[in-house]
Every structure is written in structure tokens, then in C-alpha cells.
Amino acid sequence: MTTPSIACIGIIGKHDNPLHIALFPPHTNHPSAHLEFSFLLNASLDIFDARARDRNRVDQDLGMLQAVDERLSIWGWETGTGTRFAVVVDAWGKAGNKGLRGIADGDLRGAFKALQTAYIRLLQNPFYVPDEHTPMAVASGRVNGGQITSKRFVEEVRRIGKVWRPGMSVV
């Protein structure tokens, strides 16, 4: 039986703008993978919005947002400031073999907490200006693309995606 792995991590700004997208093996080998996962993350935004309207929800962990197919599922976490973390889990794992070990609610909590900690550290950096990553700043031409380029943040997201396993409480 294979162990599920993270296929993609998406950091989405409060204006529904993609701030960072990281892909993980074996999904990095396909030439159009980045575009395909961008579409999946974009499609999950409506579900984020629907869950945000649920006023009874106090937990940041939104659980599984949608099952894309028998292999991929999208899980969500929303910060108090509206930044969203989406993790696409590959149930077949890195080997790509069918062997379904289920993912339970809470299995991604450690990964989401680690992502939020990395994002908070990014915001504490005096040289990082979050307003430069809004759609308005990108449209005005003040910045190029609006993506997070901090090496430390990108490396930490990559580390989280590589080491995560179902049930890990600390990543």
C-alpha cells in the first residue's frame, strides 16, 4: 500500500490572487502540470467562499474541499486575514500506485500549521511588502507577477511538501 503525498501547495491571497504554487513529484514531470494545478486551485476558491459564509466555523482547517478524482483531493485552510492555503493530496503517493490509504480530517493540520508559520515569518520580514502582491499593484505595473519570491519561504514550502505524511502532527 502506498502512502499519500502532497502533489501541490497553493498560497492564495485575500483577493483570490495566487501568491505561490509549488508542485511535487511525480507531478513536476508533466509540462502542463503547473497550469493544470493552477486551474484546480482556482476552482477551489468557490468552495473556500462557501465555507467562509458558514459563520459557525471557528476552525481555520476547512478539511477536504473537493475530491477531484479517485487520486487527487484538495484540502483547505484559511487564515484570519483571508489568506488561503490549499493542499492537493495525491492518494496514490509518489510512486503513483493505486493503494488507497485514506486521508482523515486533521491529517493535514500539521502541514497547514507549518505553512501558516512560514507565512507569518514572511510577513515579519521588513523587506516583504504584502501590498505589492495584490492584483491592483500587479495591474499598475509596480511589480512583476505578484508571486512570492522569498527564497526562505519557497524553501520552507518545498520542505513541508516533501516531508509531510498522513497523521504527522508536527511538520
Rank of each mutant, 00 (worst) to 15 (best):
M1H: 11
T3N: 10
T3V: 14
I6D: 00
A7R: 04
A7K: 06
I12D: 03
G13E: 03
G13S: 02
K14H: 09
H20T: 11
L23E: 01
L23G: 14
L23Y: 10
P25F: 11
H30V: 05
S32L: 10
S38T: 12
S38W: 03
F39D: 05
L41K: 04
A43I: 08
I47N: 00
D49C: 02
D49V: 11
D49Q: 12
R57E: 03
D59H: 10
D59K: 04
Q60T: 05
L62G: 08
L65N: 00
L65H: 00
V68F: 11
E70K: 15
R71G: 05
W75I: 09
G76D: 06
G76P: 03
T79D: 00
T81M: 04
T81D: 08
G82T: 09
G82N: 03
G82V: 07
G82R: 13
T83A: 14
V87G: 13
V88K: 00
D90R: 01
D90K: 01
A91Q: 09
A91N: 09
A95I: 05
G99M: 10
I103W: 04
D105E: 15
D107Q: 11
L108P: 01
L108C: 07
Q116A: 09
R121N: 14
L122G: 05
L122A: 13
L123T: 13
Q124W: 00
F127D: 14
Y128L: 08
H133W: 10
H133E: 04
H133N: 11
A137H: 10
V138W: 00
S140W: 11
S140L: 15
G145P: 06
Q147N: 07
I148W: 07
T149W: 06
S150C: 04
F153S: 05
V154A: 14
V154Q: 08
G161F: 05
V163H: 07
M168R: 15
M168D: 14
V170N: 00
